[in-house]
Amino acid sequence: MERKIEVCLTPALLDLYAIEESIVVVIDILRATSSMVYGIHNGAKAIIPVSQVEDCLNFKGLNYLLAAERNGEVVEGYDFGNSPFSYTTEKVQGKTIVLTTTNGTKALHMARSRAHQVVIGSFLNLDILCNWLISQDQDVLLLCAGWKDQFNLEDTLFAGAVVSRLRASFSHFDDSSVAAEDLYALAKSDVRTYLTKSSHSHRLAALNIEEDVLFCLQLNICEVIPILTGDKLVALPLA
């Protein structure tokens, strides 16, 4: 089977893609999908992504951890936001987390209604994700969460990293895939320095969370792939 890879550079463009037969990889490097991967890696039972802050309140009192982030900051009254340092084993093992973020959970909800499957990607699980995608007999769409429906650099760089690893196993690439791969080739020797140009990097610098950024750019420290099953992200069983 000839397989294709496409990169959707922002959720605002998702309606242009036929994804009914595609595995959609949702990407929100700074920081939602990185934290999701890290949380599942550290033993979280499940993560329930919800669209609105108010949706988290439906789960209050049910022994879930409630996590809400808007504009890079923890929403007042919630257990934590989307910093990966909140998703340590001590905090999340055996727990179900209800999470809403500015961009990542929105992209997840948009993808789930039509995609064949939805999985979560980050630099933290790059290789295991790519190896699994190669082993599947499906087209792949890399969905960049962006920033409030706009293009962003960090998600696109990750998409380019995936394209570069999958190139030999796929036959069709759209122009967004080519552009993402070229950007990654420019940046890969020092992704953090390259991202000093990015608007989101400046937003996060203002919040004094450089440690989060550095953490999210680590390669292959997690051996899990979160997959959306019903309304929950759980660890994909890997043989």
Rank of each mutant, 00 (worst) to 15 (best):
F59R: 08
H41P: 00
T101K: 11
V140D: 00
A68S: 15
T88N: 11
G104E: 11
T88V: 12
L141V: 14
P237V: 06
C8R: 06
G43A: 00
V98A: 01
P49V: 03
A12N: 03
P84N: 04
C56P: 00
K106E: 14
V234T: 05
V140R: 00
Q117W: 07
S122T: 07
N125D: 03
R3I: 08
N152H: 09
V178R: 04
S176V: 01
S135A: 15
P237C: 05
D212K: 07
K91A: 09
Q218N: 13
T100N: 08
V50S: 04
Y87H: 07
K148W: 03
I47G: 00
L65E: 12
S83A: 05
L217S: 07
M110W: 12
A161P: 12
N125P: 04
L204V: 11
T193D: 00
F59Y: 13
F59C: 07
L66N: 14
N42C: 14
L13M: 11
S169Y: 09
R3W: 14
L214I: 09
A46L: 02
L65N: 11
P237E: 10
G43R: 01
L108E: 13
Q136Y: 01
D149A: 08
F123M: 02
T96V: 14
V53D: 03
D182V: 06
S22Q: 11
F158R: 09
D15H: 09
N152I: 01
I29M: 04
D79T: 01
G146W: 00
L214A: 15
E76I: 05
G160M: 02
L183P: 01
L236H: 13
A107R: 08
K45L: 11
S51Q: 04
I225E: 04
G43C: 03
T196Q: 02
P11C: 05
A68C: 13
L142S: 02
D212A: 10
Y194Q: 00
L13G: 14
I97G: 02
V234G: 03
Y87C: 08
S199R: 03
L126V: 11
I5T: 06
D149F: 13
E2A: 11
A235T: 10
V92M: 13
M110P: 13
I5S: 09
L65G: 10
L183E: 00
K45Y: 09
E73T: 15
S198N: 04
N42I: 09
K106N: 14
A107L: 13
V50T: 10
A12D: 06
R112I: 04
Q136H: 01
R3G: 15
I40W: 12
Y87G: 08
L207M: 10
M36I: 12
V140A: 01
E20W: 12
A46K: 03
Y17K: 03
Y64M: 15
M1T: 07
N71F: 09
I27P: 06
L207D: 12
V213Y: 00
E90M: 11
A115P: 12
H116E: 08
S189H: 09
L233C: 10
L166F: 01
N152W: 02
M110R: 09
V119C: 14
I47C: 01
L195W: 00
T96N: 12
F80D: 02
E2I: 01
S35T: 08
G61I: 05
D139R: 01
E20Y: 10
L126F: 10
L16W: 07
